[in-house]
Design a protein around this nucleic acid. Structure first.
Length: 673
DNA sequence: TCGCATTTAAACACGA
DNA sequence: CTCGTGTTTAAATGCG
């Protein structure tokens, strides 16, 4: 069958909806790239504070050997960070402020600023040229790395300090109950994980991180997600220090999220700058940890201490107020001396840091892969070569930042991970179809890959209504759906369609009526819509140069030929145009979720336009084997009038008797919404 | 610039 | 009459 020719993208945002403002308006700017003006960075709304709860416990004491190990690890981490920075092109470790500007990337600030929250991915794509997008990606990557680095750094410093303090203090043991502090520490750990998660979320929003649910694993997975945001603060408070809002963690959390958010919006004000300074460590150890960046911060203030800020102790879980540094030091030495609790806390902290590092490595790797996939030159050599199982990314924690139906939420400029290439090149906010056809990944596979993404992210899918409708219909066993079922499919599959119902429903109806490829069939139960694959294919005469006949032959040989003759006959007879049952054809097809469509097949996966605008159908051998990608074919088939057995789409097994069972099951059972 | 495709909006018809 | 379903028409827009 053919291939999808039609995957046009749906891009224009529904008028006026999300504050995105007139798409059209900005769209014009199209290539101009600049649209700067209006971009208010505002952004953000999402002030979600996620808190973590639950507990991870690890106790134990640090033996000297462990301490040594710890330090070594830290050194290693520092080295890694350094590498990272080098790699990410953040040449100047020390200067945070200029990081944006300093970054090699030259994305117009205006564009950068507006992108994330104000624009949909498509819009961004439209506004930005591929090179710009690339630059943007790099910029984002740099930001992300920087943020993580800073965070790590902060954590490391904190740890180090704690250790040093402990050492210094000797072994005096405050008799304090371990419980509280430990709990606090654990909580901090959780919170950090949360933060990490948030960070990832942000990254995901930026389309930098993949979301495949299947990949969900790794550290984040272990997070108790049930904790409500409000819990944490309370926990913290309940614990050690009365009064004052906790700082250490919270602050960090804010910082992190803040920066993440800013990064997202590209406004990036270097909020992150950790209060931590270069303080000379008490025991004189020339912190291995304070390699570069520290210098940037306020080291000049002798009165600063990483664990002291805002007049209170920032030791995890401790919010003790201290008038001055001296008092704080005293407090530190007494309350947070080297004891079981403190060492345990350090260990936890260590683990946290390690986890973050691992996570960073994973994400970096993923980013690399993504960029490679997008044919973007990897902006950096891999910082870490750790053999991380790149599976850490998790699906959207729905509960957290991405309520599927966040109607009000600012439209997050998400880009489906897998969509990258396609959307990068094809999509524009407004309508752009043809190009998308060529370069967009096939709807089925695309959907399959980013199923979760679309399901949860309020992003407009880069497919035309026709493509989506077809997909919806083809997904069902009998390849037919009632209008309402189609609606349901839309809402179920795309968060985006959970709102603006009037608009898109009208569009759906319009498309059903308008396109010949959608055939209405009267049933006992009413009317159902089916897809006439041939018509669908015809819609867009493929521009392929390849000879139609060749294609045809291929088709017949490969798939069509496989069809059971009798079955074909049956199909022919049936008034149903159930021609396509791609899914059946290739059982092993990529997406288990969606039946594959020819689109998959046909659509070239290659992002770069240059590759083949007019090139013949790219039939990659592998693909070809299961699905026929015929793009050109359509023209030849003439309308017999009915949706008979389509040449293109072989549906070998259209599972089932077409007519009879159609009626039976209206809902595939997935009907959620 | 033209034509096609897509999206959106809206009017209208019909039947439950 | 209202609502859901369908059909049409028209305008705006993007793209080749």
């Amino acid at each position: 069958m053919m291939v999808e020719s039609a995957s046009e993208t749906i891009r224009s945002a529904p008028s006026g909806q999300n504050g995105v403002g007139s798409l059209s308006g900005q769209a014009d700017g199209g290539g101009s790239g600049g649209g700067a003006g209006a971009t208010s960075t505002a952004g953000g709304g999402a002030g979600r504070d996620t808190a973590a709860g639950g507990g991870a416990d690890s106790n134990g004491e640090l033996s000297p050997a462990e301490l040594l190990h710890f330090q070594q690890q830290q050194a290693l981490q520092v080295a890694r960070q350094f590498l990272l920075q080098q790699a990410s092109g953040l040449s100047s470790p020390g200067n945070n402020d200029s990081k944006q500007s300093a970054s090699a990337v030259q994305v117009p600030v205006s564009v950068a600023m507006m992108s994330p929250q104000m624009l949909t991915p498509q819009q961004m794509q439209q506004i930005l040229s591929p090179p710009q997008l690339q630059a943007l990606l790099q910029q984002q990557q740099a930001l992300m790395l920087q943020q993580l680095q800073e965070y790590y750094k902060k954590q490391q410093e904190q740890l180090h300090l704690q250790l040093l303090t402990q050492q210094q203090a000797g072994k005096q043991q405050p008799k304090e109950a371990l419980g509280n502090k430990q709990l606090a520490f654990q909580q901090q750990l959780l919170q950090m994980q949360q933060l990490q998660q948030q960070h990832l979320l942000n990254l995901q929003r930026q389309g930098l991180v993949g979301l495949q649910p299947s990949q969900a694993s790794g550290p984040l997975q272990s997070l108790p997600q049930a904790v409500c945001p409000t819990d944490l603060p309370q926990l913290w408070k309940g614990e050690g220090a009365p009064g004052q809002p906790e700082d250490s963690v919270k602050q960090e959390g804010l910082d992190l999220t803040g920066t993440a958010a800013t990064a997202t919006s590209f406004t990036t004000t270097p909020k992150v700058s950790p209060p931590v300074s270069h303080h000379t460590l008490p025991n004189g150890q020339p912190t291995v940890l304070t390699p570069r960046r520290d210098s940037s911060s306020h080291e000049e203030t002798p009165s600063s201490h990483p664990l002291y800020g805002h007049g209170e102790c920032k030791w995890p879980g401790c919010e003790t107020l201290c008038e001055d540094l001296g008092q704080f030091i005293k407090h530190l030495n007494t309350e947070h001396a080297l004891d079981d609790r403190s060492t345990a806390q350090c260990r936890v902290q260590m683990q946290v840091v390690q986890q973050l590092e691992i996570q960073l490595a994973k994400e970096s790797e993923r980013l690399q892969a993504m960029m490679a996939h997008l044919h973007m030159r990897p902006s950096e050599p891999k910082p870490f070569s750790q053999p991380v199982a790149v599976s850490a990314a998790d699906s959207f924690p729905d509960g957290l930042a991405h309520p599927p139906t966040s109607a009000a939420a600012p439209v997050t400029p998400l880009r489906p991970p897998g969509l990258g290439s396609a959307s990068l090149h094809s999509g524009g906010p407004a309508r752009r179809r043809s190009s998308s056809d060529k370069f967009c990944s096939p709807i089925s596979s695309e959907l399959a890959q980013n199923h979760e993404f679309y399901k949860n992210a309020d992003v407009r899918p880069p497919f035309t209504y026709a493509s989506l409708i077809r997909q919806a219909i083809l997904e069902t066993p009998d390849r037919q759906l009632t209008l309402n079922e189609i609606y349901n499919w839309f809402t179920r599959m795309f968060a985006y369609f959970r709102r603006n119902t009037a608009t898109w429903k009208n569009a759906v109806r319009h498309n059903l009526s308008l396109h010949k490829c959608f055939v209405r069939v009267e049933n006992v139960k009413g009317a159902v819509w089916t897809v006439d694959e041939r018509e669908y294919q015809k819609r867009r005469p493929p521009k392929m140069t390849g000879s139609p006949t060749l294609v045809k032959n291929m088709i017949s040989g490969l798939s069509y030929g496989a069809l059971n003759a009798s079955y074909q006959a049956a199909l022919a007879e049936s008034s149903f145009p159930l021609l396509n049952s791609p899914g059946m054809l290739n059982p092993g097809s990529t997406s288990s979720l969606l039946p594959l469509s020819h689109e998959d097949v046909g659509a070239p996966v290659e992002p770069l336009p240059s590759n083949g605008s007019s090139s013949p159908p790219r039939l990659s051998p592998p693909q070809y084997s299961h699905q026929v990608q015929v793009k050109e074919e359509p023209a030849e088939v003439e309308e017999d009038g009915r949706p008979g057995p389509p040449l293109g789409p072989p549906n070998p097994s259209t599972a089932g008797p077409p007519e009879d069972r159609d009626l039976e099951e209206e809902l595939p059972g997935e009907e959620l919404s």
